[in-house]
Simulated assay, not measured.
Amino acid sequence: MIYQPNNSISIGGNAIGNNISAGGNIQGSPKSVVGGGSSEFNERQQLKSDLQEVQNILFTLRTEKPDISQSQEVAKLTRETSKPLQERLINAFVAGGKTAIEEFLDIPYVNVVVAAIEGWNS
């Protein structure tokens, strides 16, 4: 993105006058901007990617076995996901609750994923 004087550009933050903001306030006329909100953006992107992986596992499972029980789905997720992925999902759930998970999942998968996360966290 090219900076043009007297224009405001806002990327996840506030812009006033000639300021460019990327997750925070930057004063003056910067030549380049490194956003303070990039860590949060990266975490959200990682969560989105992790939940897409989980959703793909469940979609495939439900396609192969449409009458599968929720406990069987949770067991499959536990086997098919790595400990680091499980830990990231636990952390997201603890930090943002069910809403953090719902944001990136199709409705039919939310309860199974929440049940799995609660099981991993206990």
Rank of each mutant, 00 (worst) to 15 (best):
M1N: 05
M1I: 09
Y3N: 10
P5L: 01
N6D: 13
I9N: 01
G13T: 03
G13E: 05
N14T: 15
A15T: 01
I16F: 08
N18D: 13
N18S: 12
S21G: 15
A22P: 00
A22N: 01
G23H: 00
G24A: 10
G24R: 04
I26G: 11
Q27N: 15
Q27Y: 14
G28R: 06
S29H: 11
P30S: 06
P30Y: 03
K31L: 15
K31V: 15
K31W: 13
V33S: 04
V34Q: 09
G35F: 03
G35E: 02
S38W: 14
S39Y: 13
R44G: 09
Q45M: 11
Q45S: 15
L47I: 01
K48A: 09
K48L: 10
S49Y: 12
D50A: 05
Q52A: 13
Q52V: 12
Q52I: 15
E53H: 12
Q55E: 06
Q55H: 02
I57Q: 04
L58P: 01
F59V: 10
T60N: 05
T60R: 10
L61M: 15
R62Q: 15
T63K: 11
T63F: 09
E64Y: 04
E64C: 04
E64V: 06
E64L: 11
K65E: 13
D67C: 04
S71E: 13
S71K: 11
S71T: 11
Q72Y: 09
E73P: 14
E73H: 09
V74G: 06
A75L: 15
K76V: 03
K76L: 05
K76Y: 00
L77N: 03
T81R: 07
S82W: 10
K83T: 11
K83C: 00
Q86C: 07
E87V: 08
E87A: 14
R88V: 00
R88H: 04
I90W: 03
I90L: 03
I90M: 09
N91F: 02
A92N: 07
V94N: 05
K98M: 03
T99F: 07
A100K: 08
A100R: 08
I101A: 02
I101R: 01
E102M: 05
E102Q: 14
L105Q: 04
L105A: 11
D106K: 14
D106N: 14
D106V: 11
I107W: 06
I107A: 14
I107Q: 03
Y109K: 07
Y109V: 05
Y109N: 08
V112Y: 08
V112S: 09
V113T: 02
V113I: 00
A116Q: 09
I117P: 03
I117M: 08
E118P: 02
E118S: 15
G119R: 07
G119V: 00
G119C: 06
W120N: 01
